[in-house]
Amino acid sequence: MEVLQYAIRKLVGGIPLILGVTFISFLLMVYFGPDKTYELLGKNPTAEQIAEVRHELGYDRPFLTRYAEYLKEMATLDFGASDSTGEPVSKILARTVPISLALITPGFILGNVLGIILALIAAYHRSGYIDKFIMGFAVVGMSISFLIVVIAFQIIFSSSYGLNAFPVRGWNVHSFADYISYITVPTLATVFVALGYNTRFYRAVLVEEMTRDHVRTAKAFGTRPGKLLYKNILKNSLIPIITRIMFSIPLVVVSGSLIIESYFGIPGIGKVTYDAITTGDQPILKAVVGLTAVLFVITLLVTDILYRVVDPRVSLK
């Protein structure tokens, strides 16, 4: 009951954030975005035709009216149909979001789990050679641009100059084997880049916990290294770890996959949104922006509840 009350309060408190995100995005993407009038008209349009198309697209109404209409659309979850293809936005989302999730989830999980494992190893051997080796690897991972990794991995794994073992681009998934072959190279690239940042962050968190007195006491009592790392160190540093993982979820879902999707030609949500920005497809933009903002507020809420789960001392007030 307490959690439910807290959830409702938190969701209501998130309204200013949703309004802010939707307002700024609406201003940028819709109000200042590309003008589609002349794309929809034939050659030599008359003034009436122009006015008619502009009216259909809603360009002739004042900004605040359009924003208010947008909020109404969002409240009723009815975003209409895409300007470019005429397909309902809800259908587009239902088709593309699962692809993006299927593409990005394995890399996201692996990147974080491997990051924590490497960080535990590095923190345990602090200042030793293993630590220096892992951290050197992390700095290299941080310093290579994601784009370079994607291109290099494609050459190595998918082209005739390398192993030529995986599909170069596209998304033609009918079975689990197809799925694995299409996501392998993107996942390897994602993990490679994510590992650099994640390992460094998690190591810093774990090292801080390791210097606490209770760890020294546990060591003095002869706790085995495995138990010490898991129970005394990892469990006690869960709060910053959860914060990092949770806050990266909304960004990963929407824009994290954009580069991979556009480079590997995978029709996911990132690619669709990017195309919508460049062509001015307003219904899609409105839906994506609004849902991202809502996703953010929900993430904040879930994060707070997770804090409570891992640390009962945290009070939900």
Partner: peptide
């Protein structure tokens, strides 16, 4: 500003 996906914000 932190809640708007970065690459989409830049594109916009």
């Amino acid at each position: 500003l932190d809640s708007i996906p970065f690459y989409l914000f830049v594109a916009a």
